[in-house]
Design a binder for these strands. Structure first.
Length: 465
RNA sequence: GGUCCCAUCGUCUAGAGGCCUAGGACACCACCCUCUCAAGGUGGCGACACGGGUUCGAAUCCCGUUGGGACUGCCA
């Protein structure tokens, strides 16, 4: 019974892709790709109230960016009839019933009997027909237990009495998540349900529904631990930076995102933490996925990203940083940018950034006519000796050969005349030219900028002292 | 409240009864290198939640406690 796996990633359109979702997508993708199976992308947009076409497009873009390709694509909004037919079948088979209880009624009854909150099966035997304001509920069993065999959690068992009858069709006539989910998994012949741990408590309902629909053999489940924040709460849209798109815009490399996400809950057998998607493909095993929540630590992601950027060839780096060298990421005008100048600075910058979005601010002084001056840097660098030093450097730079080595030697000379070590002598020049106390190596930057512009800035700074 | 899940350095993890005076990575600290900042090099700090069992022997197995989390929607 070794059938090729069919796995699925089922995001709902919310305007962005949740990094936790991307990780489960990755695991699903790996399982499918490892064994000539199929990876299915299913847009769970049954909630018409929040469903925008551009959000769906965004999911496609992000999936392509991260490199997870899919074999089949479905949108639940286009499959409504299928779910409704299943609902009718359940109702006709006596496995679902109509209910007109309002939330307040349900809560009031729960409070009155001092029992746990939740639906009490009030309408089970009322034999209500379909009608205005009525929702269809699935009748769960009151006897026995449902166990969920799970690749990474063992076999948690749930007593069926604790299961509320879930609404499967809203009073609006729209199908609900559980129904659509089970019907689709059945219809699409999904073999592995790999999803977030938050779905584990509702899996018994899934299984009961599966059986009621005559589904036969159950899929293999793997409920992967949630991703948490520093307070160990599930990563949420409201309080945590969870959007994959945000990381993309900040200049994290897609292969690093995948690597880091893969590392959260799984480790390579050889203990190597840096791995490619192909290496993951070769070594990944679902049963090796950990079972405790992992903190999404951007600090480590950042470190890995910096390493990956430095490992790029200069040409690759230039190619990949290109999008950040234009609007809206740059303070300079398009005409002011010079690709050849940037190419000379690129290796210097490449070694100093952790995210591609940090590049513009590191080279902006080269492409801006009048770069902003950081006041704190100015105050720190422009000590009493600065005037004399700048005077000397200006004179020296007016005639010296315009090569970084010469520029360095001349500054050393000027500094020594004032009894300043290079460490201190370079500061006024750096701030005068770049506006800041930190940046790429100074003399290479000066060389690239050219004598006239450098001299102009030095004189300008001297004048402000 | 109920149901379920989880528990090794600050963080991600290695660890499937002796290989563990618990290994690696990120972070942090110190030193070296150095034109700033990074990078790099060297070294350091740092954990088996607690209590009972089982066993010759437990981070590893069992039970309990404590702690954390998820779910408990006519959201997905």
């Amino acid at each position: 019974m070794d059938v090729a796996p069919r796995t699925r990633f089922a995001p709902s359109p919310t305007g962005f892709l949740h990094v936790g979702g991307v990780r489960t997508a990755l695991y699903n993708w790996l399982v499918a790709r490892q064994s000539q199976g199929e990876f299915i992308l299913r847009i769970e947009d049954t909630d018409a109230a929040r469903n925008r076409e551009e959000w769906v497009e965004g999911i496609f873009d992000s999936m392509r960016w991260i490199g997870l390709d899919w074999d089949e694509l479905y949108r639940q909004s286009e499959r409504r009839e299928l779910y409704l037919r299943a609902a009718v079948k359940l109702e006709e088979g006596g496995k679902a019933y109509w209910c007109d209880c309002a939330r307040e009624d349900i809560d009031a009854r729960a409070a009155a009997r001092k029992g746990p909150p939740g639906y009490d099966g009030f309408c089970r035997e009322r034999s209500l027909g379909n009608g205005d304001g009525r929702a269809l509920r699935f009748r769960t069993s009151d006897e026995g237990a449902t166990i969920v065999p799970d690749v990474i959690r063992g076999a948690p068992s749930f007593d069926n009495v604790t299961l509320d009858d879930p609404v499967i069709v809203r009073s609006s006539g729209d199908p609900m998540f559980v129904l659509a989910n089970v019907v689709d998994d059945l219809d699409m012949k999904i073999t592995h349900v790999i999803r977030g741990e938050e779905h584990l408590p509702t899996t018994p309902k899934y299984l009961l529904l599966w059986d009621a629909l005559g589904g036969g053999e159950h899929p293999t489940f793997a409920h992967v631990p949630v991703l948490v924040n520093e307070k160990r709460q599930k990563l949420s849209k409201r309080r945590d930076p969870v959007a994959l798109e945000q990381y993309r815009d900040e200049g994290y490399l897609p292969e690093v995102m995948l690597n880091y996400l893969g590392l959260l809950g799984w480790s390579s057998p050889d203990g190597e933490e840096k791995f490619t998607i192909d290496e993951m493909l070769a070594n990944f095993r679902l049963e090796d996925v950990g079972n405790s929540p992992a903190f999404f630590d951007v600090t480590k992601l950042r470190a890995f990203n910096g390493d990956a950027i430095r490992a790029l060839s200069t040409d690759d780096f230039i190619t990949r940083v290109a999008p950040w060298l234009q609007a809206p990421f740059t303070p300079w005008t398009p005409e002011a940018f010079d690709g050849e100048v940037f190419a000379r600075l690129a290796p210097l910058v490449q070694e100093r950034v952790f995210r591609l979005s940090e590049v513009p601010e590191m080279v902006d002084f080269v492409f801006l006519d009048d770069p902003p001056v950081d006041e704190a840097s100015w105050a720190k660098a422009m000590k009493p000796h600065a005037a004399a030093l700048l005077d000397a450097v200006i004179v020296s730079y007016e005639t010296c050969p315009w090569e970084s080595e010469d520029l360095k030697d001349r500054l050393i000379e000027a500094g020594e005349a004032l009894d300043l070590k290079l460490k201190f002598a370079q500061a006024p020049v750096r701030v005068a030219v770049t506006g800041r106390s930190v940046g790429p190596p100074l003399f290479e930057s000066l060389e690239v900028m050219g004598r006239e512009r450098v001299l102009a800035r030095l004189r300008d700074a001297r004048g402000r002292l």
